[in-house]
Nucleic acid binder design. Structure first.
Lengths: 207, 207
DNA sequence: ACAGATATTGATTGTATGATAAGGATGTAA
DNA sequence: TTACATCCTTATCATACAATCAATATCTGT
């Protein structure tokens, strides 16, 4: 007669999910352990029992998000067709913003707040990633496959535009007078962004 | 012998400025009236005396920011050259992100948090603005001046890209290994973004 | 110079928070 | 069954906060 159907791991993820929702809604300071506990259907001290502190729980949530963010655009090499790669990158990143806006928002709030908790990750893990991606794009430019533009600014531009639909969802819904963004919007926006960016850097998709 | 050089208006703006800094650094929940008071060099109760409550002070700060945001891209008509207008819009918005990143960040955090305090402003003031701008761009498209793309997505794209440099400054500095963004960066990024967008929608700047 | 309005101050209040402590329940191994 | 470790829960802590208050100081119009 086990009132306790839940093992350690299940509770872990339950708390993490509740925390993600709460942090996503209220930000770090605004979120309270009590609310997270209520959401996870657990007494508050249990949260601390599993995660030691609020700051640590927050770090774990961020870590989870960064691990979930797939390595889109990661396997691309100089030999690939830049049009195909960039189009896929834009559409995948945009789709991720649509399906998982909460993750994007937590990350955004963290960075806007100065990236105090993930500054090290940015410098240690993301810098090499960006460097290697810039090299690939520069390779395409040198090979005459695309127009000469600043690769870093291009990557930031794609990041900014795609994440915008997750982070500023409230503004977009208010401005477009909608309840939610749907599959149709994803396609229209993906078409527009991909079209502008690809044309902008002198590329056309093969048929 | 007036120890008190400050009239009511001066104190008002002093509090508003201190609050903008504090909210920008810590977010709404993270900011405390005590810290705002310290920053404004006033006792805490005076903050409440002038602004009644923390929530109201925050609203006033947001209001101030929205009023400061000039009406860039506002006077453009169908008769103008879209290349000139869009280029100027991109560069001015980008410059604003560089000179006043704090305002942009407070606005961003507010929207990410669900735009609970400025939802009405978005619907009442920004919707008409967006509608009229979309009409102008659609007019350019209909007149064959530029490529046919979704005007709304284009505007969001420009917003996202330009604000990105203010909101995600911490990430950008970490990734580019810099201390601060300078005039030179503003030019390079402006060139890249303007070039990609203009080319992307089939425009070229006149000489 | 005076009186009424306005502004400033330090002290205080009640509440919500993150964190801890200590005992009880549960499962596991001998 | 017994012993032990893990897990959970109730009760409680000190702290920081927004907000209020009563008392004092300052200004302003007459």
């Amino acid at each position: 007669m086990s009132k306790r159907q839940s093992n350690r791991e299940e509770i872990f993820t339950r708390i993490l999910e509740a925390a993600e929702v709460e942090f996503g809604l209220k930000g770090y300071s605004g979120a309270s352990l009590q609310h997270i506990a209520d959401r996870a259907n657990l007494p508050k001290p249990n949260i601390v029992y599993y995660f030691q502190s609020k700051a640590n729980l927050y770090k774990q949530v961020l870590n989870q998000i960064l691990m979930d963010w797939n390595d889109l655009f990661d396997q691309a090499t100089i030999d690939d067709d830049p049009a195909v790669v960039l189009d896929a990158f834009i559409r995948e990143k945009l789709a991720l913003s649509f399906t998982n806006p909460r993750s994007s928002r937590i990350f955004a709030m963290e960075v806007i707040g100065g990236a105090l908790h993930i500054g090290d990750y940015l410098k240690e893990d993301l810098v090499p990633w960006l460097t290697s991606r810039v090299e690939v794009i520069q390779g395409w430019i040198d090979a005459g496959k695309m127009r000469s533009i600043d690769p870093t600014s291009l990557i930031f531009m794609i990041w900014a535009t795609t994440q915008h639909y997750a982070d500023f969802e409230a503004q977009i819904l208010a401005l477009t007078n909608k309840e939610a963004l749907v599959e149709e919007d994803l396609k229209r926006i993906g078409d527009t962004v991909s079209s502008i960016v690809l044309t902008g850097v002198g590329l056309t998709l093969p048929n």
